[in-house]
Every structure is written in structure tokens, then in C-alpha cells.
Nucleic acid binder design. Structure first.
Lengths: 347, 347
DNA sequence: CTGTTAGCGCCTTCAG
DNA sequence: CTGAAGGCGCTAACAG
């Protein structure tokens, strides 16, 4: 003797059909916005739906259409700001496209992911999957997806850039522009903090940095290129290595904002004025860039736009229903943002 | 003439049954871990499943069981750090419990949400919904959910704390402890920056602050209590109002870390040493607390634990299947974290 | 433009 | 312990 636990289990398509004096099929057509339904009939159906407070059951729809209308985001919590931007862009576009977004994370290593992805896909029936960095470059994940035949888009991948649909940005060029900007300010002693080697972006950004210096004919100094891992802590170590002693750079280009924040912190500790004695620049324009004093000169990476585009590409590919056409690659460019953390070098 | 687009549409329960020489029903039993299946039979089924690379179809399962195995997180992007912590806790617990997590956001005002929630619920069939702050206190959302009969848990609600299952924390007490800590350091001139009035936590935290001062017999100064909205920008304004002029507090307690970061920024700009001339404390212990120099003394709010607990409560309630029992309220306490941004007042 | 028929893949119910 | 029948709610694929 169980009362209906909730109203979710309410009217069905049949009830609506009956009430509107049509067949279930016609209701289904109205539901799916198909055109060949007489306007008057449509009206009647719509009204019946309203009267009965009808809510279609997705499970049934999914079963019949062999689609789940769920997209999966497989992510790896690199950086809260990044993820949260990703989500913003995705959710909006998903809603527009009539999909839902489910998110899954997993262990942090590539191998952890191999199993995890399989498990997830086994129990979720995602229509497609979105792979942000660094997951987009985990071979095990891509293999698993391909083996299971699940369509996916990659965001900012490094490898096989055009083997699969993806959304890319111009990290390399942006890093070069940023470096040029520092050169134009008059800096010649410029340090660089590398990103996580697991992320393709780290190599791109470094390449851009090196290219700009080379074009300007400025020699690199090894001790001014420090490893980092895109984390604040790694930035602290890198900054300390670079800034202790008197023979220090007059500007530091950190591969992301969090590490740039660390540089600012170390500068503060050493009593160096930013930007008076040390210019600092970041990359990404995440929230930390503006939650800092002085605010960071950085490169705005349009994360939300990129993630929105990824949903776009994926859903369109799904609508096309597996008919192969060209793999879509969309470039969304970065933008240089000048704020208070940079200035000409001290005289 | 369409080839099978992907392997998702692979073996069904029937195929497995046939291969194992049993009925589909038996396979279903194995699948659902029911006990009354002979071990040998079970083995045979399991093997057949492996051989055929069988993956159950959730849509079908959901349809038959009238459950979706999806939980919805209705959120409002207040603060990236907060959200990202929420997600971490939820996803882990969801996986353990065999659920998936779908996220939806919407406009930012209460009224926007009324429609949005309905739309979402109409097209998603979530088994239950999780409401973090401030959404947990939007009447329109709660009404919509109740009207549709969708179970939900609230995280850190302010209103009707025990009308529905929820996970709460001791904001008030923690804020009081923090204030006491400042008093014990010797501060008597303490400023406070309020949080967003839309969040219940902001009132709790202020109440704790006031209580501690009252117990210590210290009079409040109106100009040292400034409004804020939990954003960095609002913190800047508040800090500027509080710190300009010579008659300034020796310590500022900001209702969250982002606003505390703003206080540090303003102090830097004014040439005030933190913590030498000004102690600053935050609340939440989000990433910004440690991405700052000096690192913030703050209150750690165990967000991930709270969100994990919320999934726990919700899934257990779902397993019980609507039979009403006591509404579960779980308290997860905060913790005071002392770091570098506080020190005794200057002599 | 609309209706009929026949499932989608799994699970509930009731027999054995 | 296992199986057979039927249905969950919706939608292809045909007919008209």
C-alpha cells in the first residue's frame, strides 16, 4: 500500500492523447516540435498537456530514441577557477541544446582513469563526452572512448590536434605577445615559470616566450627558467629560486595566474615592490588575477566560450548522427589584459 | 541503411541470457546483486556478460524502475572555490552510491529560478536535488520542488532549518571563536565586513562576531561594521571605508576569504603592513586563503564533507523510498585555522 | 496531416 | 532458485 511517492509519476502521453482526443503519436509529434500537425490539433494537445500538468518521461524517451540526452564532462579538478568557468559555458549551451550535463572525476593519474572512464561509461550512457585539459591528452581515456564508440570533443588538446573535433586556443601566440609586451616596456631580464608538463598548454606557452626573446635577440638564462606545476605552491618555489640574490630578473612571466600570485607573494616577502621593482604577469585571467593586489597583467583565456563551443560541436555532431563529415576544429583566441602588476623596469 | 553508430548499442540482456543458457530474468537478478541465484549460475552469467562486453542500458532500467539514478545540483555560482569543493565531495559519494550527478544553474535572482527549476525538473527526472546556499533559501525553488514532489537536501540553509533534511555547520560559533582569538591576541579595535544578505551564513557570522564582542564588553562602532556581498570588489569598498583615516581598527574580520583578500589589497595600497599594522581574517578557507601573502587566518568550512554528507542523506532517503522517517539534519563543524595574516596589535 | 503496430531493454509479478 | 508474461512511456516505421 504505497501512495505515489511523488508527482513525477503523473500523467502519461496516453492520458494527454485521450484528453485531447488524438492518438499518442500526435502528442509525441507535438512534443518533438514536428511540423506536420495541424495548428488546431496542436493547440488542443498543448492545452491537454497543461491541464494534466504533463511531464514527459525522459527515460522512456531515451530508451525509444536510443539516446540519453546527457553529456559527460570528465574532469580532473586542476584549478577551481578554471573548472567553474568551464561549467558556466557548458551549462548554458547544454540547456539551449536540450541536453543535460553530468560530471565525473576520478583519480588523478592517467592509469586511474583508464578504469574509471570505462566504469562511468558503462553506467551512464552519455551521448558524448567532453574532455578538458589535461584529460584530453590522456591516451588511456581516448582509447577507452574510442573503443566504446563514444563521441567526444577535446578542449585545448596538445596531441593529434585534428584527429578529433576540438576547441583550441592560441596559447603560443598569446605567450609571445605577452613577452613582446614586456620587451616593449623595456624589460630585457625576464624570468619564466613553466606550467605542468602534463598540460600541453605549458609547452605552448613556453614556446611563445622563447620565440619572442629569440626574435628580440635576447639570450635565455637557464636559472631564470624555473619549473612549475600550475599550482601556487610550485610557484612559490620557482619564485624563490629566481628572486633570491641580487642578479634577478626585472620581470617574471608565470605560466598561469596562480603561480603569478605566488611570485607576488615572494616579492612581498623579499620587500620588492610590484610592479616598481618587479613586473609580474600571469596567464588565464582566472579569478585570482583580480583577487590580488596589484591586479595581474595576464592573458585572458576565454574558457567559458571554449567550453560552450565544445558543447556546440558535440551536440551538432550528435544531431548529424554519426555520419562522418570533417572533424571540426574551432579556434578561440586569447586576449592580452594589462593591469597593475607590470611597469617599465626601474631605472 | 545506417550502420550502428557506436558500440553502445551492443549486447542486451537477452543476448547475455541466451549465451549463458538462462532467462533474461536471471541475468537481471545477477545484475542487481540479488541473492537467490545459484553461485554456479551467477558465474556463468557474469562470464557471458564479460564475453559479450555487456553494458546495461540505464534508460531502460530507469524506465522500468521509475528512477533515473541522477541527482541534480541546482547551483548559482557564487564563488568558484566553493563550487569546486562542493563538486569534489558530491562526485565521490555519488559514485559510491551508484548515482550520477547533473548540474544546472540559472539566472541569479530568486524569480528567475522559479521557472528554471520547473523546466529543469520537467526534462530531467532527477531522483533528488541538492540545494547549496543561497539557493537553499529561495522560497520559489523550494516551493517548486515540493509541488513536484521531488526530494531534496539543503546545504547550510538558514530558514526552516529542520523542515527538510539538511547539512548544517556552526558558522555562528566559529565566527565567535575567531573573534575571541583576535581578542586574545590583544585586539580591541576590530572591524567586521558583512557577507551577502542573501546568504544565511552572513547573518550567522555577524551574530557570532557581535556575541564575542559583547561577552568581552567591547562596544561596537558602526563605522567599523561595513556591508559586503562576499565578492572581492565589495570587500575593496568596505575595506577602503574602514581603513582610510587614522582612527582605524587594528584587525578586520571579513565574512569570507575573498573579501579578506580585498582587505589585504587595500592595506598594501595604503602601505599598512599585514599583520604588523593590521590583522586580517577570513572565513571558508577556500583556495584564495592560501593563494595570498600573507596566508589568511580563517575558518575552515568543510565544504566537501558537507556536500558528501548531503548526497549521503539524499540517497539514503531515496533508498528508503519515501517512507517518512525523521528528517535528518547533519552538523559538520568548522575549524579555526591560524596562518600568517594575524598578529598582536602594534604597541 | 493522423493513426496503428511493434518494439526500445529492463524489471515486476506471479508461477513453478 | 528460475522462468514466462506483461508493462514501464515513448517513438520509429509504416499505413492511410
Amino acid at each position: 500500500m504505497r501512495t505515489r511517492a511523488n508527482k513525477q509519476s503523473g500523467a502519461t502521453i496516453k492520458d494527454v492523447a485521450e484528453r485531447a482526443g488524438v492518438s499518442a503519436m500526435t502528442v509525441s509529434r507535438v512534443l518533438n516540435g514536428e511540423s506536420r500537425v495541424r495548428d488546431e490539433t496542436r493547440e488542443r494537445v498543448l492545452e491537454a498537456m497543461k491541464e494534466l500538468d504533463y511531464r514527459p518521461n525522459i527515460s522512456a524517451r531515451s530508451l525509444a530514441k536510443a539516446r540519453s540526452f546527457f553529456l559527460g564532462l570528465l574532469y580532473n579538478n586542476p584549478n577551481p577557477g578554471y573548472v567553474s568557468e568551464l561549467l558556466v559555458g557548458m551549462m548554458n549551451r547544454c540547456r539551449q541544446a536540450g541536453y543535460h550535463l553530468a560530471i565525473e572525476d576520478s583519480g588523478s593519474t592517467d592509469s586511474h582513469w583508464a578504469n574509471a572512464v570505462e566504469m562511468v561509461l558503462r553506467t551512464s550512457n552519455f551521448d558524448g563526452v567532453i574532455l578538458p585539459p589535461p584529460v584530453c591528452d590522456f591516451p588511456s581515456v581516448r582509447n577507452a572512448l574510442e573503443e566504446m564508440g563514444v563521441p567526444y570533443v577535446r578542449i585545448a588538446p596538445e596531441q593529434d590536434r585534428d584527429a578529433q573535433p576540438s576547441v583550441i586556443t592560441d596559447d603560443r601566440e598569446a605567450a609571445e605577445r605577452m613577452t613582446q609586451y614586456l620587451l616593449e616596456l623595456g624589460h630585457t631580464r625576464i624570468g619564466f615559470i613553466q606550467g605542468d608538463t602534463e598540460h600541453g598548454s605549458s609547452r605552448q606557452r613556453e614556446a611563445g616566450f622563447r620565440a619572442a626573446l629569440e626574435k628580440a635577440g635576447i639570450a635565455l638564462r637557464d636559472e631564470w627558467i624555473q619549473p612549475g606545476r600550475y599550482t601556487y605552491r610550485s610557484g612559490l618555489v620557482a619564485a624563490e629560486n629566481m628572486l633570491r640574490g641580487d642578479d634577478r630578473p626585472s620581470a617574471v612571466f608565470a605560466s598561469n595566474d596562480d603561480m603569478a600570485a605566488a611570485v607576488v607573494a615572494v616579492a612581498n616577502k623579499l620587500g620588492l615592490d610590484v610592479p616598481g621593482q618587479l613586473s609580474v604577469t600571469g596567464f588565464d585571467d582566472t579569478q585570482t588575477a583580480t583577487t590580488l593586489w596589484p591586479q595581474l597583467t595576464t592573458v585572458r583565456q576565454p574558457i567559458a566560450e571554449m567550453s560552450a563551443a565544445s558543447v556546440d560541436i558535440l551536440t551538432r555532431a550528435l544531431e548529424r548522427g554519426g555520419e562522418d563529415s570533417d572533424v571540426e576544429i574551432r579556434l578561440i583566441p586569447c586576449e592580452l589584459i594589462v593591469r597593475g602588476s607590470t611597469a617599465p623596469p626601474a631605472a
